[in-house]
C-alpha cells in the first residue's frame, strides 16, 4: 500500500509557466512540483508569491502558457474548458479561506452541491442525505445544524461544512486555500485534526496553502513557494 502510494502521483507539475499579460510584473515559473497520493502537503508562501495562481492552475481554472500539469496521471492543461470543469468536479474538493457556502441554502444542500455536477462522485454514494449527515457527525457538527441555513452557522462550523462538501463522494484531491486563517488557534487545531481524519478516511490527497509556518509539523511534507518557483526577470 505504502509502496504503491509512493509511485502514484496525485499532482505532477513540469516546467509550468504562467503570467496574465506580458506587461505584468508577476510571472510564475515552476520547474517541477509533485504530490504523492495520500500525502498531506502544506504549501507555504508569502502573499503575492503565486500560491493562489498555482492552485487555480491545478484546479483547472487557468491553463499554463507552457508546461504540463498532470492530475492522477492525466494531463489536464490540454482539456477543453468544459472538460476541465468536469474534471474538477469529479476529482477535486475545494475549501476556500472563508465564505465557502451558499448563504441562502441549508447545510445539506450545500454539502450535496458537488454531487449535482459530478455523476462520478454521486454514483459512489447510495444515500446522499445519510452520507452527508454522517460526515457532519464525524466532523462533530451538532445534529440540528444540517437543516439550518448556512448563514446561521458560526465561521468554524461553516468551515467544517466546507470540509464535508469538499470530501463528499471521496474526490482523490482536496485543495484548501488558507482554510484556518479566520479561526483562532484552538479552533484551528480542532479544524485541522478533523479535516485530516476525514481526508484519511476517504483516502484523499491534501494540498493546503497557508502563510502560517507553525502548522508545518502537522503535515507530511512542507513545500515553500520560494523553493519551487523560479524568479524571472
Amino acid at each position: 500500500m505504502e509502496k504503491s502510494n509512493l509511485n502514484e502521483k496525485t499532482i505532477q507539475i513540469n516546467s509550468v509557466k504562467f503570467h496574465w499579460s506580458n506587461k505584468s510584473k508577476f510571472k510564475l515559473h515552476i520547474p517541477e512540483l509533485s504530490v504523492d497520493k495520500g500525502e498531506k502537503v502544506l504549501l507555504l508562501g508569502e502573499s503575492g508569491s503565486g500560491k493562489t495562481t498555482l492552485l487555480s492552475l491545478i484546479c483547472g481554472f487557468l491553463t499554463p502558457l507552457s508546461g504540463n500539469i498532470q492530475l492522477n496521471e492525466k494531463l489536464i492543461n490540454d482539456l477543453s474548458a468544459t472538460k476541465r470543469d468536469q474534471y474538477r468536479s469529479d476529482n477535486i474538493g475545494i475549501i476556500f479561506q472563508q465564505f465557502n457556502l451558499l448563504p441562502y441554502a441549508n447545510v445539506i444542500d450545500n454539502i450535496l452541491l458537488p454531487l449535482h455536477f459530478s455523476k462520478l462522485r454521486s454514483a459512489s454514494i447510495s444515500n446522499q442525505r445519510e452520507t452527508a449527515i454522517s460526515i457532519c457527525q464525524s466532523l462533530r457538527l451538532p445534529e440540528d445544524v444540517v437543516n439550518m441555513k448556512a448563514s446561521e452557522l458560526s465561521v468554524g462550523q461553516q468551515q467544517r461544512v466546507a470540509v464535508a462538501r469538499a470530501l463528499i463522494g471521496n474526490p482523490p484531491l482536496v485543495i484548501a486555500d488558507e482554510p484556518t486563517s479566520s479561526l483562532d488557534t484552538d479552533a484551528q487545531n480542532l479544524f485541522l485534526d478533523l479535516m485530516f481524519s476525514q481526508v484519511a478516511s476517504s483516502n484523499s490527497t491534501l494540498l493546503m496553502v497557508s502563510h502560517d509556518k507553525s502548522l508545518s509539523s502537522k503535515f507530511d511534507r512542507v513545500i515553500d513557494m520560494k523553493n519551487v518557483s523560479v524568479k524571472e526577470q
Binding site: 484546479c59 481554472f61 474548458a81 468544459t82 470543469d85 468536469q86 474538477r88 468536479s89 469529479d90 475545494i94 476556500f96 465564505f99 465557502n100 457556502l101 451558499l102 452541491l113 458537488p114 449535482h116 455536477f117 459530478s118
Partner: peptide, 9 residues
C-alpha cells in the same frame, strides 16, 4: 466562484 469551484461550467 462557489458554483465554479463545485464544477459548474
Amino acid at each position: 466562484a462557489i458554483w465554479r469551484a463545485m464544477g459548474a461550467s
